[in-house]
Simulated scan of single mutants.
Amino acid sequence: MTLNNAKVLIIVTNWGIEETELTRPLRDLKAAGAQVTLAAPTLEPCETVQHDRYEGETLTPDALLSDVQAADYDLLVVPGGTCNVDRIRVNKDAITLAQEFAHEGKPIAAICHGAWLLVNAELIAGKTASPCRYIAADIENAGGHYVDRELTVDDTNGWKLITSRKPDDLDAFVGAIKNALAA
């Protein structure tokens, strides 16, 4: 599957991102021909972690969260990592971006804790999602429906939400992103 005209935005903070939940979508989508932009609050290196504990790879962001707009992209990806998402879910630029993607009817893909951002952006109500089990109560309390499966794609409320639980689900998660971009 080639995604030559697809433009993907991945948003993170500068520390605490679960390594494979960032690097797999980033590299797999680029390999399929998509133009992928990594945006963060600062242009300092983004330090990833493995299992929220061990030092991972460091990547350089392409843009500032404050400088990117949903109108310029086809799909938003929110990787997990407990510390990453705990910070990004209170970042006003990240909340605004998520809201803009949803309001423009563009897909949002969130893995593991990534759906926490959608709770704070008030976008999860009426949606079914499969984030990590640690935020199941947050999803339910925000009016969403939590299910424990490797992938959930929900088209309700006028926009597509793609969610997966953990790094073991990345094949299904990245495949669903590719399918959404090819549609």
Rank of each mutant, 00 (worst) to 15 (best):
T20V: 11
H113K: 05
V77Y: 06
V49Q: 14
A39V: 04
G80I: 07
H51D: 07
G143P: 08
I111T: 11
T128N: 05
N84D: 10
T23N: 10
Y134K: 09
V49R: 14
V85L: 03
N141A: 15
E21F: 09
N91C: 13
T42Q: 00
V36I: 05
E21Q: 11
P61Y: 05
E19Q: 15
P45Y: 15
G114Y: 09
K92M: 10
T128P: 03
L64E: 04
E100A: 14
T42P: 00
V77E: 06
A102W: 04
L117Q: 02
T82I: 10
L76H: 08
W15A: 01
D67F: 00
A94C: 06
A32W: 03
E57F: 05
A121W: 06
P25E: 02
T23I: 15
T23S: 11
R53I: 02
K92N: 08
E47G: 00
T37R: 05
G143C: 13
T37S: 10
P61L: 08
E100S: 13
P41C: 07
A70P: 00
V68K: 01
L65M: 09
T23D: 01
A31R: 05
L65G: 01
E21D: 04
T37L: 07
E104D: 12
E104H: 06
A31W: 00
G114T: 09
H51N: 13
V12A: 07
T20G: 00
P41F: 09
E18R: 10
I95D: 08
H113C: 05
L65I: 07
R24C: 03
E122R: 09
E47I: 12
G144S: 10
A125I: 03
H145E: 15
A125W: 01
V78C: 06
A39C: 12
A136S: 15
G105P: 10
C112W: 00
V68F: 04
D138W: 11
N141L: 14
E122K: 15
Q35D: 11
G81K: 00
E57M: 13
